[in-house]
Amino acid sequence: MFPCLKLRKIEERLQCIQEFDRPKVKLEQYVTPAHLGSHMLYTIQSQYGDIDGKLVADLGCGCGALAIGAAALNASLVVGFEIDQDALDIFQANIEEHELYNIDSIQCDVLNIPERFHKQFDTVLMNPPFGTKQNEGVDMKFLQVALKLSNNCVYSLHKTSTRNHVLKHADSLGAKGEVLAELKYDIPATYKFHKKSSVDIEVDFYRFVVSR
């Protein structure tokens, strides 16, 4: 066990993160729910010590729930990568609100991150687009980038229904994947095409260890 902020404290932090004003279907913008994000961050730090004092990346950081949580857990520096200006504006407002100074952000396409970042990060966090609708396969592209950026490990969420595929894909990229938990991702009706008021999606919380 590693020293870690209390789970409740992390969740409180994440609860006051401002969400997307107008989420974009094309980018599969969903907020990481505070309950889910705090459990992820708590596990990553308390079980593996992979945040405190580490260089951390958040891919497709959106409004920055994971990045802000990691910064609050004393990452030496968190770098958020995000393509969408509107999301970054909210992210910046959240950073200021939380008075955290160990976060930096870059507006760029996650699939186009400069090679000089490869192997630089100790820990890569992401809640990637699940690759539904027109984005099929984008989740695996995110995973591929994440594994390149990390010199140690990657934490990510993927749909439970794709587990075999995810593990095989990681294996083919030279990484060892492990499902740490099965979670229910409660997605409130964000978009017009959602018919129910909220949908539970079953997701796996993964830890991938990168071969050195």
Partner: peptide, 19 residues
């Protein structure tokens, strides 16, 4: 004075336009 967030030189040290 409103504090505005910034790019750190660490990040600059990694950025390229090779793509």
């Amino acid at each position: 004075i409103n504090i505005i967030r910034n790019m750190k030189l660490f990040t600059h040290n990694m950025l390229t336009t090779k793509c």
